[in-house]
């Protein structure tokens, strides 16, 4: 069976089994939510909700002068490293100071891989999407560059590519006219590696980043978030980020 047919069958299957609302004869509103797994991929393939990649940032270990994660990201994804208003920045270092006590914190900010991602909600083309393993990214084939997602993201995580791009990493195609943001190095994850920033932070940085599967109760990150106090930035918005911070309570 061709892939197109497979996709079609899945869609129709989901429409019939989950919820289908007949708007007019032959026109359906289909709810294709969780459960629209790739049935034929079997155990090893994509299964909605089986994995949820997440990151835990220990702000106590992150020092203000260190930018190893940022440089690693720029190198891995072939970003220019510039910080002009029109430059793509997938991860930034931020310095926060508590006005009352004067205590300052340094931490990296990137796409928080929200469970209820506003960027996905507002995207008119379906380009901004959440993958089966919780990674939010842009399908650049569909992106029309409208930049709604840049406006909708509460974390200012999305960038727009203003200039033609050359010399891309063959694993990370990116180009002018598309929105983009941190995708947890999904090309590395798909090959069993960890994101470049986490690797760099562990080897030459402060070892502040912990990456893992939040849905696996045995993973180090799950055990840590279950035992220590961590914080999701702007948790009040209900976006349910997969990136958590410890030490800034």
């Amino acid at each position: 069976m061709s892939e197109v047919n497979k996709e079609r069958r899945q869609l129709l299957g989901a429409g019939a089994a989950v919820a289908s609302l007949v708007v007019a004869p032959g026109v359906f509103l289909v709810t294709a939510g969780k459960g629209r797994a790739d049935e034929e991929a079997g155990e090893a393939g994509p299964q909605w909700g089986k994995v949820r990649w997440g990151m835990l940032v220990d702000t106590a270990k992150c020092s203000s002068g260190c930018t190893q994660c940022v440089s690693a990201c720029d190198k891995e994804n072939h970003l220019s490293g510039e910080t002009l208003p029109t430059s793509s920045q997938w991860i930034r270092k931020m310095e926060l100071t508590d006005r009352e006590t004067g205590k300052s914190y340094s931490l990296p900010m990137m796409c928080q891989h929200c469970d209820n991602a506003p960027c996905v909600d507002v995207c008119p083309t379906g380009a901004s999407f959440k993958r089966w393993d919780g990674i939010v990214s842009v399908d650049r084939h569909l992106c029309i560059g409208c930049r709604y997602c840049l406006m909708a993201c509460p974390y200012k995580a999305r960038s727009f590519v203003h200039h033609p791009v050359t010399d891309q990493n063959p694993d990370v195609p990116r180009g002018q006219g598309c929105a983009e943001s941190c995708d947890f190095c999904k090309h590395r994850i798909d090959e069993g590696q960890i994101p470049a920033c986490v690797e760099a932070c562990g080897s030459t940085g402060g070892g502040a980043l912990l990456f893992g599967d939040l849905n696996d109760p045995k993973s180090e990150i799950s055990q840590r978030v279950a035992t220590i106090a961590t914080l999701q930035v702007r948790a009040d918005l209900g976006t349910e980020p997969a990136v958590r911070y410890e030490g800034i309570l």
Partner: peptide, 13 residues
């Protein structure tokens, strides 16, 4: 077209 959909949206590489 088929391949890119799997590659990008499902991570089948």
């Amino acid at each position: 077209l088929e391949e890119r959909t799997e590659w990008v949206r499902q991570g089948i590489r």
